[in-house]
């Protein structure tokens, strides 16, 4: 867990969470605020922050920190942390 984890910081800022949160808790199943409306905004935020575009299959598999991380790295985004 690092301060330089840009994805983690983005999720914490986006959902207004405490910086003590565990990465495992950063998921649609543990965060009630992570509903379908939040999802739209989150995708916009991820796309503009990391300069990527997601296709439909990928969007349906962006339900947690680890899934997003996995997807971004497959797109060649170099994530620290």
């Amino acid at each position: 867990m690092s301060d330089h984890d840009e994805l983690r910081n983005l999720l914490i800022d986006f959902f207004g969470l405490s910086s003590a949160v565990q990465n495992e808790e950063l998921s649609q199943s543990s965060l009630p605020a992570w509903d379908s409306l939040a999802m739209v905004q989150l995708i916009g935020e991820l796309q503009s922050t990391f300069g990527v575009e997601f296709d439909l299959d990928q969007i349906q598999a962006l339900r947690s920190y680890s899934e997003i991380r996995e997807c971004l790295s497959r797109k060649g985004v170099n994530l620290a942390g």
Binding site: L37, V40, I43, Q47
Partner: peptide, 16 residues
């Protein structure tokens, strides 16, 4: 406008 956001949530506007 972005068709992805429009179809996902009937919210047509891009972040910009």
């Amino acid at each position: 406008s972005d068709s992805l956001f429009d179809l996902m949530a009937r919210q047509p506007l891009t972040p910009e």
